[in-house]
């Protein structure tokens, strides 16, 4: 568990508070809405993220008594719920990646990238990356996106999804292998 200790304590306190007074659950929303929204928006789009992020907190509120602070933070629990909700939109997610892979390469907005060099190579890579994303299985994609978009550690991904750390590792390896197969081809021919 690599999470910050202070954060853990305050989450646990928050859980204790909303168990005494359910009105305190708005604080859970205020604390984590942004993280959940950005995670879902990255996988689907911003409009779907509005609905799914909101629904994540409605479901969390309904299931609040089932949450066990001993098993990990509120944030991981919420990422788990959001990931289940995203699963209902699998076709939309696949369309999203296919659309990204077809996108014409546009110059990055000024100030968007720190380094011009990174910007150029990242842009050349993008259609290939998006193409690779479309080839992942649901399990591989869940793990990869929680790491890349949710910025969870491997252990945290395991807790959020309720799977073993070993499974997280093997899914990520498979995802990486698919990526490298596609991206290396690009560097040779590109």
């Amino acid at each position: 568990m690599t999470a910050d200790v202070g954060e853990q304590v305050s989450d646990a306190e928050l859980v204790a508070q909303y168990r005494r007074n359910s009105d305190r659950f708005t604080e859970v929303h205020d604390r984590y809405f942004r993280d959940i929204y950005l995670y879902v928006a990255g996988r689907l789009d911003t409009q779907a993220a509005e609905d799914i992020a909101a629904e994540t907190f409605l479901l969390a509120f309904d299931q609040r008594d089932r949450f066990d602070p001993e098993r990990g933070g509120l944030r991981l629990w919420l990422f788990g719920i959001a990931t289940n909700l995203v699963a209902r939109h699998r076709r939309k997610e696949a369309r999203h990646y296919r659309a990204l892979s077809r996108m014409a390469l546009e110059p990055a907005a000024e100030g968007h990238e720190n380094s011009v060099v990174t910007s150029v190579s990242a842009q050349r890579m993008q259609p290939r990356l998006a193409q690779a994303l479309a080839t992942l299985s649901k399990g591989e994609r869940d793990v990869l996106m929680l790491v890349a978009l949710g910025q969870l550690s491997y252990d945290e991904v395991a807790q959020a999804l309720g799977i073993s750390p070993g499974t997280v590792g093997s899914r990520l390896s498979r995802a990486r292998a698919k990526f490298h197969a596609i991206i290396d081809k690009e560097s040779v021919h590109g």
């Binding site: 359910s22 009105d23 659950f25 708005t26 929303h29 205020d30 809405f33 942004r34 929204y37 950005l38 928006a41 990255g42 996988r43 789009d45 911003t46 993220a49 509005e50 992020a53 909101a54 907190f57 409605l58 509120f61 309904d62 990204l100 990242a122 890579m125 993008q126 990356l129 998006a130 994303l133 990869l144 996106m145 790491v147 890349a148 978009l149 910025q151 990486r176 990526f179």
Partner: peptide, 30 residues
């Protein structure tokens, strides 16, 4: 090696009204 994926898929911060709408749905549920 995963950073380019995060860059590719990154979206802007949620607009304030989106966050408030969601919060209000939660309030209704509460």
């Amino acid at each position: 090696d995963l950073r380019p994926i995060a860059t590719l898929l990154a979206k802007p911060e949620p607009p304030r009204e989106v966050e408030l709408c969601s919060r209000n749905r939660l309030l209704a549920r509460m």
